[in-house]
Design a binder for these strands. Structure first.
Lengths: 205, 205, 205, 205
DNA sequence: AATGAATGAGGGTTCATTCAT
DNA sequence: AATGAATGAACCCTCATTCAT
């Protein structure tokens, strides 16, 4: 009873793992269920025992990601809309990305494919909510761009991670720093300098 | 001699146009040659008269984009590596993106597909060159991230363009402003705060 | 549960049968998988469940042929290299061809197609081994040609079978007789040549 | 007037040459008109100026071969049906094959393809006529096989040529010798059988 | 919990051929 | 004498999916 069926109830999980790996590595469309099944040494039909469709696998993956995000949003909505809160949102999002990195890489690199995948909308909606949490209600265009850039810079971080040299943790810290900076710049503390990091009198205007 | 496509000589161009449109709209993998052909009211085989493979179509599209980019790189390499030059690089790149917007959206949204498309490497290499032009040789990690973010923010601008409200030209200007800011911050003018956005007096120059 | 092919488990075998029939009848290249599938009343895709490629079907066919041949070679290699052995090789090969006749006809008539079919080499190699078993190590050119002709005459027998009139079994016997004669002639025992046409004095000139 | 159009009226010939080369090298079905055209550095359409169809090219090739064959047949039919004549037929056929070697290799290796190529019948017919010239009218089965084998041994010679070591001319001579022997054996003159393997008393029965 | 066998739709690609110029 | 542009049919192959077992 050792080798024959060494994996018992964890097949569903294993499918998700392998699927995510392949999706993010080779792309959603180019990854076939056959490949997934082969890598798992099961039949394609076995996948269908656990998931109704290919899309269903993605959805299930996405739900794992969604939870931390939703919690973050829920938390933020209970907080005062201060810069402090926003920076904490960035920090937490940055942290959330860590655990969901492959999935985010997948989302990032397969936008076109994801778009008509039913979760596309959901995903975009969540990004917009997050964006709404970061920006002031009446923020100028430039500040809005700053906030979007902050979010995207963390996603795109994946590219940075591959490209830049250096210790991964340090790189992550640098990314967080830049994102923080952008959000800070987008949220001028009160009246002075509507949209510049700090930088007293001279800035934009 | 009017009705049935009077053998206009512009078919190749029309293929490129339609292909780019569909690729960027529905994704590379999900766009079939049949679709392209149907939209053009020609046969699939006609596409093969003009392009050797599906990939060849993408390559041809990419070459149109490559030229402005290469010119920009060539120009920049003949300039002194000053902040002024770098900001001009950003400006010109921003401008280049305007004319190649759909193609960039395609690149951005189909990274996974593009990756093993032979031009994937080329594209990445070009990004790295551009990145090298923007950053100082011994730049800190944070500054490097700033430069990358500047580049990506312009690409991601496509998302911003769809999301944000407002006049397209104004949005573009806002995106350029943020990118400029990031590069400026990444290139501290001399002694004061080697890599921080602020730096009051100097920045506005 | 009767009418629509009740999922008999013999589909693989049936594919091979039909494929061999069509390949040898209409040629490898001219036989499309569609035709095979249609004749079997299954879908093309069904073929791909059983064989990875079209070439794979040929390979599988060839393996059935290869076994008797390999056994023959193995047997012969364990025997003394006498004329007796060689004639027995001819006899057995002649017998082996009987069961593999359609396949040999296919090989014979589709040499060009078979050549770049991966088994091409294998096939040729086997012929060479057989040839090596029939001829003396230091045989004269003429004797070598005799041996090759003996082998080929049995293959080409397929043509003879169609052309000549008469009882199939008698025709087969005639073919065997000529092949035997050729090999005998090619192996003069030393001084007495049991089966050399005649011609002591003249032949060797 | 040198380089621009260096080849004037010889295009038709050049098509035939290249076609024969490719057909016999890669097989009829696997050789596309595109390949032929490319090798000639003309367009496919140019081929259609000179030949009505792909098959037409083969037919034209075959006609070049047919002439020597027909002449041979015509000559033979004017001769007495003696062994001497038959051996001369073999000799001349052997000679004819020399100049038509590639075409014969093509015929030999693409039988399946040639079969439904309209010339298939013609070709077979000619073989049968030749066969009829070699054998006695009331020949025994074994003798008939000898004659067929003689013919085929010369065709199959192509395989022998590649396989055997030695000087090409010597190999050719060896092939002719074996063919001659077979025909001689198949034509016992009545009482003296110059080349009958054995069997004085029995053969004449 | 999973397999074996199959399907229908569609993929990209190649072919021989046509025809106006 | 040859080209440029195109077609229609067919090709091999792969996919996501189904279903009886």
């Amino acid at each position: 009873m050792s080798t024959p069926h060494p994996r018992r109830g964890n097949t569903r999980q294993r499918i998700q793992d392998v699927a995510l790996e392949l999706f993010s590595e080779r792309g959603y469309e180019k990854t076939s269920l056959r490949e997934i099944a082969e890598k798992l040494e099961v039949t394609k039909a076995a996948l269908y025992y656990h998931f109704k469709t290919k899309e269903d696998i993605v959805i299930s993956l996405f739900q794992d990601l969604a939870k931390p995000c939703d919690e973050l949003i829920a938390w933020a909505e209970g907080q005062p809309r201060t810069l402090e809160t926003k920076l904490e949102v960035i920090r937490r999002y940055h942290e959330a990305l860590r655990s969901a990195e492959p999935l985010f890489r997948f989302m990032q690199e397969n936008q076109a494919a994801v778009r008509d995948l039913s979760i596309g909308e959901t995903f975009k909606a969540r990004m917009l909510t997050l964006f709404g949490l970061l920006k002031e209600d009446d923020a100028e265009l430039t500040d809005q761009v700053r906030c979007i850039t902050a979010l995207f810079s963390m996603h795109a971080g994946m590219f940075a991670m591959q490209t830049l040299e250096g210790d991964p943790e340090e790189k992550r810290r640098a990314i967080l720093e830049v994102a923080t900076e952008l959000v800070t710049a987008a949220n001028p503390p009160s009246r002075r300098r509507p949209a510049r990091p700090d930088s007293a009198q001279t800035a934009s205007s």
